[in-house]
Design a protein around this nucleic acid. Structure first.
Lengths: 203, 203
DNA sequence: CGGCTTATATACCGCTCGTTATGAAAACCG
DNA sequence: CGGTTTTCATAACGAGCGGTATATAAGCCG
């Protein structure tokens, strides 16, 4: 009994590519937020009808979760790579430059999908908010762990506060995304990053 | 002809206090955002009916603008005071501590009204977004001017970048508001501020 | 008291929202 | 070819949205 990846389709084959549709949906959620993205916006961008969307993705909420997963996998992968930098300063620099590059990419919307959807809106979006915050928490824990390791390795001074450093660097990343989404020019964002890096000790 | 403040009321006197109602409306916009706040939410919190709201405040959009004005006047006054600090570092410290105190105040909602409403939602809220961003811009210019003054006074080194420093400090403030709105404990936020201050040169 | 003005209360408007019922179309199997 | 299964297209559902028409109540002025 083969449960997964049945190669022979039984009924009428679907006429659209699921991954392409999900990518289109991501762009809508990214620019308009969960509540701001109506089903009309979504179906028009995805090029499919409402029943097709519900058959393929369940409902609006599960569609959002799948889009969020795609977003983290393709657009936030720089975070995981940044943690592999040899020094704490290298980690911070990679994080800041990664966030900056995200705002530089003109083929993608400005702002950050997570930041946009972490601010409270209607009551219906409460579960969405929690899902977004949950993922943010796990990313935060990973950075804390990396800074604690750096402290043990003598890469950070004994009086360093890994939690404080993490909140600090996340605040800067959030600020970059927020200001980028607000329309701040990339040149200005670059100066923000430059200033941040000049603050970090032990150049 | 006395245009303003006519002391004698002509018709039936209104049965609610306009300032109290506006304060209640502010809390709703603050916690739910412009689009997330329905007229039902607003009228229930304000203790008035829909026609009373429209007679006193115009419509939802102008009500929001009046609430935003009240918010800046009462909750963001720490920014203006911070700019009066004698040194650039004093300014930065007052800004960060002011933002932290805002998240500490348990009698007010967490997060920042401006941050919440600066992220894009539906198309109807586009003018709201622009209004919020406009006010943010003016605050930014004030901080830039203050840092430029500090540079002229020799309070900041010649190679300092007032624009970059401003974007940097605003990013931290935005991060504090965002993390505060996300439920981060005040203790953690305090460490964030502490870390930020430890980064600023020339203690 | 009557006339005038303004605030209140109830109910409703047209519209959009997310979701789904209905029926026809397209592939496979026997 | 008939039967089965899945997808597609149209249209509709109930609920909630921002905003308002209508009628009544409460004050002043003469």
């Amino acid at each position: 009994m083969k449960t997964a990846a049945c190669t022979v389709a039984k009924g009428r084959p679907r006429e659209f590519d699921v991954d392409e549709a999900l990518t289109a949906a991501l762009r809508i959620f990214w620019t308009k937020g969960y509540e701001g993205a109506s089903l009309t916006d979504l179906t028009e961008a995805m090029g499919i009808t409402r029943p097709s969307l519900y058959a393929a993705f369940g409902n609006k909420e599960s569609l959002f979760c799948k889009a969020l997963e795609l977003y983290e996998r393709e657009k936030l992968c720089y975070i995981g790579r940044a943690l592999e930098a040899p020094t704490a300063r290298g980690v911070a620099e990679a994080l800041l430059r990664g966030a900056l590059e995200r705002q530089r990419d003109t083929s993608d919307p400005r702002g950050c999908m997570g930041v946009i959807n972490s601010v409270a809106c209607g009551v219906e979006a409460e579960s969405i908010r929690e899902e977004v915050l949950k993922r943010g928490e796990s990313a935060k824990r990973a950075i804390v762990a990396r800074f604690e390791r750096a402290k043990q390795e003598g890469d950070l001074p004994d009086h360093a506060d890994p939690e404080g450093l993490t909140s600090y660097i996340i605040a800067l990343i959030q600020g970059i995304a927020l200001q980028g989404g607000a329309g701040t020019s990339c040149a200005d964002l670059e100066r923000l990053v430059q200033t941040s890096l000049s603050m970090w000790p032990a150049k």
